[in-house]
Amino acid sequence: MAPTVLICDDAIFMRTMVSDILQQAGFEVVGEAETGAQAVERYKQLRPDLVTMDIVMPDMGGIDAVREITKFDPDAKVLMCSAMGQQALVVEAIQAGAKDFVVKPFQPSRVLEAVQRVLG
């Protein structure tokens, strides 16, 4: 069975790209979220193997969403997707429970490497 993934980003462009990359690598995209609040809700609903999480989102940012998700499921595997120059926020996200991060603009191979690391 293909591993499942929940993609969280407020831009359709980015969701489509992450979805393309991961689907081509054999993942099943079971859900998408446009806000932090939606991400938390969908995570509880779908219990995906992997979550990709944007940092800047409306209605609860990505970092707070990671905090909520790991509170609900300490084993949650969340990969942060941050824009260039958000290093400080990445550290905060890791402290909040994210397992790793990739930097936008995405290089597909980098995304897959990070995914491998997160899923161990």
Binding site: D10, F13, P58, A83, K104, P105, F106
Partner: peptide, 15 residues
């Protein structure tokens, strides 16, 4: 809202 929107455009255009 403006900040997030500009941020999104930046991310997409960089990609």
């Amino acid at each position: 809202v403006v900040f997030r929107a500009v941020h999104t455009i930046k991310g997409m255009s960089a990609t």
